[in-house]
Nucleic acid binder design. Sequence first.
DNA 1: ACCAATGTTCGATTAAATTAGAACATAAGA
DNA 2: TCTTATGTTCTAATTTAATCGAACATTGGT
Lengths: 98, 98
Amino acid sequence: MHPSKESITLSGILYALSDPTRLALIQSLASKGAQSCGALSLPVAKSTASHHFRVLREAGIIQMQAEGTQFINSLRRDDLDSRFPGLLDAVLLASEVA
Amino acid sequence: MHPSKESITLSGILYALSDPTRLALIQSLASKGAQSCGALSLPVAKSTASHHFRVLREAGIIQMQAEGTQFINSLRRDDLDSRFPGLLDAVLLASEVA
DNA sequence: ACCAATGTTCGATTAAATTAGAACATAAGA
DNA sequence: TCTTATGTTCTAATTTAATCGAACATTGGT
């Protein structure tokens, strides 16, 4: 379900983050910390939101852990920083500027 | 044909670079400097290569200038660095690691 | 047990990207 | 002027992605 750090690919990350909805998602996670899927309140259907979480998860950008009836999402910051130094920070900085 | 610096979007850049063929293209431009389309010798049909150049150009990542019968491609490094500091470098670094 | 809350998965639909072949445009050279 | 070189544009086929509704699973509370 969650890819290992080594199997995270650059193309996968760039693709996952090229979607404005997913970009907004990780921006929220970065600024407000870990949140459940519902707390992130996307303006799309539940199934669509679930799809976006899956894309981010399978790209290795977020991790999800069950907590009661909900799932808590958080950035895999350490893994990303060690595998692709500076990339996440540059994207987050750019997403604030734009 | 070439977008202004201000109209370059983060999503556009991330999407354009999420394709392995295009990523390889800009990596070659970064390491070997400006090159014609032909010199970059992609393993695809001419029309397909032209499509990839167009995507990179319209995303604001490269600029193309006519030079005789050919087009010289180069990175819009200054524009990218000023608009999204550190992003291009992080991607290029990541593309070397991976 | 029963019910509500929270997401996931399945199936279908619609939209967008990738690819390539064929025809076209432009510049340089013989 | 004719030909070659270098890409672009057009059109079409295949693939991939985004979206939603409905049904399903799991947990926690009543």
